[in-house]
């Protein structure tokens, strides 16, 4: 049955994609293009592009897209459920453990050791985003002159507004999008 196949495929994607986002891509390709032939490679590339352009996790976006292509809206719902089920079980168990034991001195020590690492990871992700935004590619190019000036301006203004006036990040992101449309239309 197609619904069960969708559920099981995306359950596996949800279960084995640790580290989020881009870690899920090869898994999705494996299930959706190679094993089940639900999408062609060109369609897969399209959905990855769209997943990056629209809000929400890549795995959920592709679950919805594949589900619709294969079995309409019910397919989309089933694939999405499959995708989040492993998280529900595993993360809720971890949440229970965390709130039960976090007062223990040892657990506090471990968590204190983790915090700087978490911040370092977010910092690394942030730098990747800055490079992506300024140069349109993941790694810093050899020639640094190809910088996107509009993006630099939007970045600088957004950053200033966030630090100085503590504006809600949601408004900053929407404002940055509007600024992009305005500035590129003028140029």
């Amino acid at each position: 049955m197609i619904y069960l196949e969708l559920l099981w495929s995306f359950f596996q994607i949800g279960l084995f994609s640790i580290g989020g986002g881009y870690a899920a891509m090869p898994l999705i390709q494996d299930q959706v293009v190679d094993i089940h032939s639900w999408l062609t490679m060109a369609q897969f590339a399209d959905i990855m592009t769209i997943a990056e352009m629209t809000p929400g996790p890549i795995a959920i976006n592709s679950a919805t897209f594949v589900g619709i292509q294969v079995a309409g809206i019910p397919g989309a719902v089933v694939a999405t459920i499959g995708c989040v089920l492993p998280s529900c079980f595993i993360v809720m168990t971890l949440a229970y453990i965390y709130y039960r034991f976090r007062e223990l001195k040892m657990v506090q020590g471990i968590l204190a050791g983790l915090r700087p690492a978490v911040i370092a990871m977010i910092a690394s992700a942030g730098i990747s985003l800055v490079i992506m935004s300024f140069y349109g590619e993941k790694n810093l190019p050899v020639d640094l002159s190809g910088i996107n000036v509009v993006s630099v301006i939007i970045f600088a203004v957004s950053f200033l507004v966030l630090r100085r006036w503590k504006v809600n990040p949601v408004y900053v992101m929407l404002g940055a999008g509007a600024a992009g449309v305005l500035m590129y239309s003028v140029i």
Binding site: G126, V130, S151, V152, L174
Partner: peptide
């Protein structure tokens, strides 16, 4: 155009939170 602009905004949002969280360290 909107996505390119938004990407710059998202990058700023992440940098902001890294500084805020990093201060505590």
């Amino acid at each position: 155009m909107a996505m390119t602009g938004m990407l710059a905004g998202v990058a700023a949002v992440i940098c902001d939170v890294v500084i805020t969280m990093g201060k505590s360290v």
